[in-house]
Simulated assay, not measured.
Amino acid sequence: MGTRHSDAGTRALPTQELRAALLALNGTGVPFSIHETGAEGADLLAQWRYLKPSSGSGATRSQVERTLKIWMRLCPRERVVRAMDEQFEVTRAGHPPGRTVARAHGRGPIRGIHKEWTMEKGPDGRRHRVETFSFDSRDLKNPLRTTVLDAGWTWRGVYRM
């Protein structure tokens, strides 16, 4: 599940300083938001919602919305952050996309890189590949995990809070 320990000799920050460091990631150019939760078992939630470009036309046109969440519980006694990954996917059809045709939900490690391209004619008259969509799950997890490890804590991936 991806347990990572901080470097030996790293001084562990107090719980409130770690919480503040994680919340400070908001507005630093990261593609997700992080906030405190009122949920039982979790202290913080990092959430990334994105839409994949529409595909198809007319009634067969579809668009996928994905929501990735990382629920974090700070365990001060052990200096461990327990992190649970969760994914939601909703596929909508029609023009404009509105009718829900599929839903998916899962827990477990969020991993993946997804890119889509189109071919377009360039100024030189030749066809060039142009990236239209890009997603890399490391853009979500790495800033969180790095902040935790730099604070002298351990990052532990779990399936349940």
Rank of each mutant, 00 (worst) to 15 (best):
V101T: 13
E116T: 09
A104Y: 05
L74H: 05
T118H: 10
D85H: 12
L74I: 07
C75F: 15
R111Y: 03
R77Y: 14
P76Q: 14
E116W: 03
D85A: 06
E116C: 04
H105M: 01
R77A: 14
V101E: 04
I113K: 08
M119V: 15
P76N: 08
D124A: 01
H95R: 09
K115R: 15
L74Q: 04
P123A: 13
I70N: 01
T100M: 00
V90D: 09
R103W: 04
K115G: 09
R111H: 10
R82C: 06
T118D: 13
W71F: 14
R126K: 14
G106C: 07
W71Y: 14
G125Q: 02
A93P: 05
E86A: 11
H114T: 15
P97V: 02
G112L: 00
K121D: 08
H114P: 02
M72F: 08
R73M: 11
V101M: 02
K121F: 07
H105W: 08
A104Q: 02
R127W: 15
G106I: 04
A102E: 08
R92I: 00
I113P: 00
D85N: 11
M84E: 03
C75E: 15
E78R: 10
G122A: 11
V90Q: 10
K121M: 12
T100I: 07
R126G: 11
W117G: 05
P109V: 09
F88M: 07
R92L: 14
G94A: 02
H114F: 14
P109G: 06
R82W: 10
L74V: 02
D85Q: 06
T91R: 04
P96E: 04
D124F: 06
G125K: 00
V80N: 05
R107D: 07
K121Q: 12
P76A: 13
G106Y: 01
I113Q: 14
P123G: 08
R107I: 14
E89S: 10
T100R: 00
T91F: 03
R99N: 03
G98C: 06
F88S: 08
C75V: 15
D124M: 03
K121L: 08
P109T: 11
R73K: 15
H114Y: 14
P76Y: 14
H114W: 15
C75Q: 15
R82V: 00
R79K: 15
L74R: 02
V80E: 10
P123D: 08
T91W: 05
E86V: 06
R103Y: 10
E86C: 09
P76L: 09
A102P: 02
D85L: 03
